[in-house]
Design a protein around this nucleic acid. Structure first.
Lengths: 363, 363
DNA sequence: GTGAAAGCGCTAACAG
DNA sequence: CTGTTAGCGCTTTCAC
């Protein structure tokens, strides 16, 4: 029991079908790939033989012959992140229609894994690559780029290298987030970051700063809390926030998890949201609808992002890139919900406004 | 620009390396696969040639020759479900160590996809299969089982067919959930289901009924709300709950999403959790920590579940199954948190208790 | 220890 | 329209 060694022996090969149908293997192959180049009588004969024998072509053999695998590698930083899971669905939906399969490369912040996927590309197990990572994976000495395979960057553009990229307007939205908070009367801000060093974090952080500058605020008007794109970053930020004597009232989080972790933590300390502090997130993950209060956030078109990335890769693989395909940037939608509201009108807030106005005037 | 058709032409082949090193292709192959069967001088020669040429073996060619692909197909109902995402991580962690890659089969409740993955297995693109679905995928006429590949069921056992399965103790935990609510004094219950017709739902539902029976309650003591394993099922359940005049006070949800959707909805209608109604979830997803209040739930060892499933598949592929490997059932952990509490001591509750006692006595 | 040669199972020229 | 033939790039006997 369980002693027999599994061995992948092809039960029925194309030659068997050919014999049964009384034709050559080439004809069988034609029936399966180019049915129109075959007489209909022959077609029926072969199809019947295929049915009777239960034949399915061996795709490894075909791949070797045709030099294509019909598989695409999708490299993502973290599978458990709902953002990437959603993008992956979009990718899957689009690629499956064109007959491509997906091999997922889950990085999980682990360099060995990265190396593995570089080898995968180098050894031609895939026809194309979708990078959700914002960088080209490396394998000590070699880079995934050396494989010479078509690559498309999704979610985060890849700096320096000329690959098509499909992203959202991170920077613009982050900028609008600040403007939105300012409109609500906030004048002291908090920024909960995402994974330091990543492109996405740089964009959102940059947009946040742009927003501050555009509304007449500066570096002295906000605090910044750093950490990866996870809940606990928001928790840590909240703990720092709670220790402050003069707390910011308008918080922008670079991802919804950070926002939710923050809110949950400050609320258990008795801080009211949005009465005492407004929080705006980024991503629009499903859980944001079920957080308490319902999270105000910028919703990314995640599914469409995945689809668009996949479509671009297909074009690239087929040599059908148009001039507008190299840089696609999808817009975000502001979902105004329950974690943002007017800035508290306490004396302190007014004092700050006064001080700020003065300092800016004197500058 | 972008006009050149991408074509996967292998830049450097094993013959090139052989020529550079001045040896035969067989020797190059030996150096790469069985270094110990080669003189160390030859070894160095070949390695240097590999380095200089930037050679990476073409895995399709190797796969064809060795009749193995070193890839495993993992079929999951839904990628965006955090439960499966977490299991997948465990699978990945284990398989990657043994040099296997993962091809994801995301079903998303779509029969065409199912068919595709059946073909994938039939065409021998993978060496083994991990099913998180509780059933063998079908392709109209043919089943994935026909491929003759090693299959392991994870998360949900597969009925009727003899494949190894790695699951959690759904039934036992669901039963304990009821006992827990009963201990808290609840005597009118609600059950928020998961996807009707699935094995997992059947197990949890069955365990819930067992728990009722074990504590002396019956079919008249609970209401059942049906729907898939998603947030909105909990929302719908809550809406039905709110319309009831005599509401249950102890709710068990077959998944955390359902519990969270329920809680969010009843709270916005002014119902207090756990003062008015206690809710216990199932899964222990990360969100449960950030729901408000923090969700009481049974935590599945999701990562370990994935690892154990992958380990079992590896054994099966290597013909090393032991007698205890065919049925692995991991325990769950009850996380007692803030959505459960003593049953409200209102008159109604007491009345119900009295009525129940009487009816049971007369039965 | 190393090389020559024979395929893995399929597709794509090229003739007929 | 169909069959013959020649590989895709690699691994693995089998001799030497």
């Amino acid at each position: 029991m369980g002693r027999k060694r599994w061995r992948a022996v092809q039960a029925v090969r194309i030659a068997d079908v050919a014999r049964i149908a009384g034709v050559s293997t080439a004809t069988v192959s034609r029936v399966l790939r180019n049915p129109d180049r075959v007489r209909s009588g022959t077609y029926d004969l072969v199809i019947e033989a295929v049915r009777r024998s239960g034949y399915t072509p061996n795709s490894t053999a075909r791949n070797l012959r045709t030099r294509r695998t019909m598989n695409v590698l999708v490299v993502a930083p973290r599978l458990t992140n709902p953002v990437f899971a959603q993008v992956l669905r979009g990718v899957d939906d689009e690629l499956i229609q064109s007959g491509y399969g997906i091999i997922i490369g889950n990085l999980d912040n682990c360099a060995e894994r990265e190396a593995r996927y570089v080898d995968l590309a180098l050894s031609r197990q895939v026809d194309g690559i979708l990078l959700l990572t914002g960088s080209i994976p490396m394998n000590g000495t070699r880079s995934m780029g050396e494989a010479g395979l078509p690559i498309v960057a999704v979610c985060a553009a890849i700096p320096d290298i000329r690959v098509p990229n499909v992203t959202v307007q991170d920077r613009e939205a982050s900028c609008r987030a600040v403007e939105y908070l300012v409109q609500l009367g906030h004048c002291k801000f908090g920024y909960i970051s995402g994974t330091p060093g990543t492109i996405i974090e740089a964009e959102r952080s940059g947009g946040f700063l742009e927003g501050l500058a555009a509304t007449g605020f500066g570096l002295e008007d906000f605090v910044r809390w750093e950490g990866p794109f996870v809940f606990s970053t928001g928790v840590a930020a909240a703990e720092a926030f709670l220790r402050m004597k003069e707390r910011p009232t308008g918080i922008f989080a670079a991802c919804d998890e950070g926002a939710i972790g923050f809110i949950k933590t400050v609320r258990s300390a008795g801080v009211r949201v949005p009465e005492d502090v407004s929080v705006i997130g980024f991503d629009g993950i499903e859980f944001a609808d079920y957080a308490e209060p319902t999270l105000t956030t910028f919703k990314q078109p995640l599914h469409e992002l995945g689809r668009a990335g996949a479509r671009t890769l297909l074009k690239l693989m087929q040599g059908k890139m148009g001039p507008t395909d190299w840089n696609i940037r999808l817009p975000l939608t502001l979902l105004e919900r329950d974690t943002t509201g007017p800035a508290p009108k306490g004396e302190k807030a007014l004092e700050i406004v006064a001080r700020d106005r003065k300092s800016r005037a004197s500058a």
